[in-house]
Simulated assay, not measured.
Amino acid sequence: MNALFRSCLVACTALVLVAGAARAEPEPAALVDQQHCMFCHTRDAPFLAPSFQQIAERYRNVPNAQFMLEHKLRLGGKAHWGDMAMPLPGDRGGPLSAEDAHTLVQWVLSQ
């Protein structure tokens, strides 16, 4: 392998790694499906509830937002966007562990 090719390969690999790091977290598809998130939310447009991007824009830099959103996912909660409240876990797909709630909220806030 000549030096020019090796240098190009290293540079391209670095670009791919940097581009991948700049993207949003991969969707935790199993959790999104289990909790029926897409019944009310979409990634980028309001539907029955705010989009994941709207939630991220609103809460990304709010202190303690991660904790508040995890709590709301695990227990349901009052409406902060219009009249629709977050459904109770039993109405969404069942209980959600603290770890799974953390994973979902991290993903939403990365949008």
Rank of each mutant, 00 (worst) to 15 (best):
N61W: 11
H80W: 15
K72E: 11
L109K: 05
K72P: 01
Q53R: 15
Y59E: 04
K72M: 13
S97C: 09
L4A: 12
W107C: 04
H102I: 04
Y59I: 05
L109A: 07
R92I: 05
L17D: 00
D33I: 04
G93A: 12
P50D: 09
R60N: 05
G76H: 09
S7Q: 12
M38A: 11
K78T: 07
V32N: 05
C12Q: 02
R74D: 03
S110F: 13
R43Y: 12
M1L: 10
A45T: 07
M38V: 08
L17Y: 03
A22V: 00
A49W: 06
D83Y: 13
P95M: 12
R58K: 15
E70W: 06
S7C: 05
A24I: 07
S97D: 08
D83S: 13
M84T: 05
S7K: 09
V32G: 00
V18Q: 02
G93E: 06
P63R: 12
A11M: 11
S7T: 05
R58G: 04
P95E: 15
C12G: 06
Q35D: 02
H41R: 08
Q66A: 08
D91G: 00
A29I: 09
L15T: 04
L75W: 11
H102S: 14
F47P: 01
K78H: 09
P87M: 11
L73Q: 01
A14Y: 03
A24M: 11
Q34V: 03
N2V: 00
P89V: 06
A24C: 10
A24S: 14
G82W: 15
L31H: 07
A65Y: 12
V32P: 01
F52W: 13
Y59T: 01
V16G: 00
A22E: 07
Q66S: 06
D33R: 15
A56E: 07
G77W: 12
P50C: 09
H71I: 01
V62N: 02
L48C: 00
A19W: 10
L31Q: 10
A24H: 12
M38G: 01
Q106E: 14
H71Q: 14
Q53D: 08
D33P: 01
N2E: 10
L96D: 02
V32D: 07
A45D: 11
A85Y: 06
M68L: 14
D83L: 15
A30C: 00
D44Y: 09
F5V: 05
L31A: 08
F67K: 12
R92N: 09
A21I: 02
P28W: 13
R60M: 01
L88W: 05
G76S: 08
R58S: 06
K72G: 01
L104E: 02
Y59C: 04
A24T: 03
A101R: 06
F5T: 02
F52M: 14
T42P: 02
V105H: 03
P26A: 14
A11S: 12
Q34G: 05
G77R: 08
L96G: 01
A98T: 07
L48W: 10
S97Q: 10
M86R: 01
T13E: 03
Q35F: 10
M84R: 15
L9K: 03
